[in-house]
Design a protein around this nucleic acid. Structure first.
Length: 464
DNA sequence: GCATGATCATGC
DNA sequence: GCATGATCATGC
C-alpha cells in the first residue's frame, strides 16, 4: 500500500505514528497531514446511527487514520509488524479521575476451537504479542473523528502477570473440557475474562465439545479492572511516575494461593489473638474491626489501594460473621451510590457490575456461642454465578430509573429481589449527597442479600 | 426472626 | 469533612 505515513513492517514506526494523535482528534491530525488529505475523502463518513456502534472509534481509527480496511481476520491488524491495534474508551469520573470505561474485548472464540489449544499456542497469545493501545476520551455526543486521544502506546503481556493470565485462560479452558461452557462466569477469573457475546436468543447459542447443552457465545477480554490498570501503568511510564502500589506476589505465584497462605497462620484464632500475634491493637468498638484485621494481614492500607494484584483483579475482600447457628447476621454493603453518575451509566460499565463480576475473598469469622469471641474460621474465594447477574442488573436498572425520575424513596427492598437490595449507607439520617436533580438525598448503597449469600456460599460450609 | 433504617469509628 | 466497611436497634 503506497502513501502510508508509517512503515507497516516496523512496530516503532506504527507506534510513533499513532502517538501523533495524543491530545488531538483523528480529524485534526488528518487535516494537519496535508499529504494524506486526499485520502480522507475515502474515509467512512459517520451517520448519527452508526455513531452508536460501539466498535466505531476503532474502525474509524483503522480506516481513516491508518488507511487500512477493517477485516475480521484472525491475524494481527499489522501482520508484518505482528502488532495488534486496540482502541479503548476512557471516562472521567465525578472526582476527575480518568478511567477506562469498559472491558477490552480481545477476540471471539468458539468452544470447539479453544478446546484444541494450549495457552502457549493459543490464539490469544498469537494475536496479542504486541498491542498498540489507543486510549480515547469517549463522548457519545461526538463523532469518532472528533474524539480526543489521551494516549497511544505499545503494550506487551507483563511477565509478572503472565502466570495468573495463564491460570485464567486454563480455568476457562477447563470449563470447556468439563462440558461446562454454559456455566462460565466472568467472576471465575482474575485478569482475563470470558464475556458473553451475542444475545441469549436460541439462535446465537453455541455448541460445546463435551456436552450437548448449548452455551452463550463468549469472547476473551481483559476485565475492566485489569485494562484500567494497563492504562494506569502506561500513563505512569509515560510521565515517569513511580507506581504507588506494591506487588503482593513473587514470581510464578497465583493470587488465590498467595492470599490463602497469608491467612493460614491465623486460622482458628480469635480477632483479639490475631492482633496480639501481629503486635497490633485490637479495638473491639470498631464496627469494621474484623475487616481491619483481614486487611492488615494482606498488607492493605486504609484506602485498599496499595496492592497491585488486588487492584488489577478487582478482588473484593469482605468479612462475614457467622453466628453459632451457622448463619450470617447481616447483608453485605458496597460503596455509596453516586446519584449523578448512575443516570448516565450503562450496567456493564457500572461500579456495581465490576464489583459483582469480580472474585470475592470472604474472610469468615465465626463464634461458637453467644458469649464467645469471633475467630477466623476460614477464607473462601467465591464468584457470583453468571446466571444470577440478571437479578443484580434488575436492581441496578430499577435504581437508575428511580434516580432518573427523582424518586429516592422506593428503591428495591430485600423481599423484592433474591440477590440484592438498596438501603441507606451514611453516617446518619442527615448524611446527604447531591442528586441528578440538583437536590440532596440520603446516602444509599447496593447490598447483597444475606439470605442469598447464606444459600450460595455459607450453607455448604456450615451445613447443620 | 428479620427487614429496615440508623449509626459508628476510622483515617486520610 | 466524609467515604468506607461495617454493625446496631427497632418494630412489625
Amino acid at each position: 500500500m503506497g502513501g502510508l505515513l508509517y512503515d507497516e513492517s516496523k512496530i516503532e514506526s506504527i507506534v510513533s505514528y499513532a502517538q501523533r494523535l495524543e491530545h488531538k482528534s483523528i480529524n485534526e491530525v488528518n487535516f494537519e497531514q496535508h499529504s494524506y488529505a486526499g485520502k480522507i475523502q475515502d474515509a467512512p463518513t459517520q451517520t448519527e446511527e452508526n455513531s452508536k456502534n460501539k466498535g466505531n472509534f476503532g474502525n474509524y481509527l483503522e480506516e481513516a487514520y491508518f488507511g487500512k480496511k477493517n477485516d475480521n481476520k484472525s491475524q494481527p491488524d499489522f501482520p508484518f509488524a505482528k502488532l495488534e491495534l486496540k482502541a479503548s474508551p476512557l471516562k472521567t469520573c465525578a472526582n476527575y479521575e480518568v478511567k477506562v470505561k469498559e472491558r477490552m474485548v480481545l477476540g471471539h472464540f468458539t468452544f470447539v476451537a479453544m478446546d484444541k489449544e494450549s495457552f502457549e499456542s493459543s490464539h490469544l497469545i498469537e494475536k496479542n504479542q504486541n498491542v498498540l493501545f489507543v486510549f480515547y476520551h469517549y463522548d457519545r455526543k461526538q463523532r469518532s473523528g472528533d474524539l480526543t486521544i489521551e494516549l497511544s502506546d505499545l503494550w506487551q503481556f507483563l511477565k509478572e502477570d503472565l502466570p495468573q493470565i495463564k491460570n485464567d485462560w486454563e480455568t476457562i479452558h477447563q470449563k470447556i473440557r468439563d462440558g461446562k461452557a454454559h456455566e462460565i462466569s466472568e467472576g471465575d477469573t482474575m485478569y482475563l475474562g470470558a464475556c458473553t457475546k451475542g444475545s441469549t436468543a436460541e439462535s446465537s447459542m453455541q455448541v460445546q465439545p463435551y456436552s450437548t447443552e448449548k452455551a452463550r457465545g463468549r469472547a476473551l477480554c481483559f476485565k475492566l479492572n485489569y485494562i484500567n490498570h494497563i492504562f494506569q501503568i502506561l500513563m505512569q511510564r509515560r510521565q515517569h511516575r513511580k507506581s504507588l502500589e506494591t506487588r503482593l506476589l513473587s514470581e510464578n505465584e497465583l493470587i488465590e494461593e498467595h492470599i490463602l497462605k497469608l491467612y493460614a497462620p491465623y486460622l482458628k484464632k480469635t480477632a483479639d489473638e490475631i492482633c496480639r500475634l501481629r503486635g497490633e491493637k485490637y479495638n473491639p468498638i470498631r464496627k469494621d474491626r474484623h475487616s481491619a484485621i483481614a486487611r492488615s494481614i494482606l498488607g492493605l492500607n486504609k484506602d485498599g489501594t496499595n496492592l497491585y494484584e488486588l487492584n488489577a483483579s478487582g478482588i473484593t475482600v469482605k468479612t462475614i460473621r457467622i453466628e453459632p447457628n451457622g448463619k450470617m447476621k447481616e447483608s453485605m454493603s458496597f460503596k455509596m451510590i453516586d446519584y449523578c453518575e448512575i443516570v448516565d451509566e450503562e450496567w456493564e460499565e457500572s461500579y456495581f457490575y465490576a464489583a459483582i463480576t469480580s472474585k470475592f475473598c470472604f474472610v469468615i469469622f465465626k463464634r461458637d456461642s453467644e458469649n464467645s469471641e469471633y475467630y477466623l474460621d476460614t477464607v473462601k474465594f467465591w464468584q457470583i454465578p453468571s446466571e444470577d447477574y440478571t437479578q443484580f442488573e434488575k436492581v441496578w436498572n430499577d435504581t437508575k430509573e428511580k434516580v432518573s425520575i427523582g424518586d429516592y424513596t422506593h428503591f428495591m427492598k430485600i423481599a423484592e429481589n433474591p440477590c440484592s437490595h438498596v438501603r441507606p449507607h451514611g453516617q446518619n439520617a442527615r448524611d446527604l449527597t447531591p442528586t441528578a436533580q440538583g437536590t440532596l438525598e440520603k446516602k444509599m448503597c447496593f447490598w447483597i442479600n444475606r439470605q442469598y449469600l447464606q444459600e450460595k456460599v455459607l450453607d455448604e460450609l456450615y451445613r447443620k
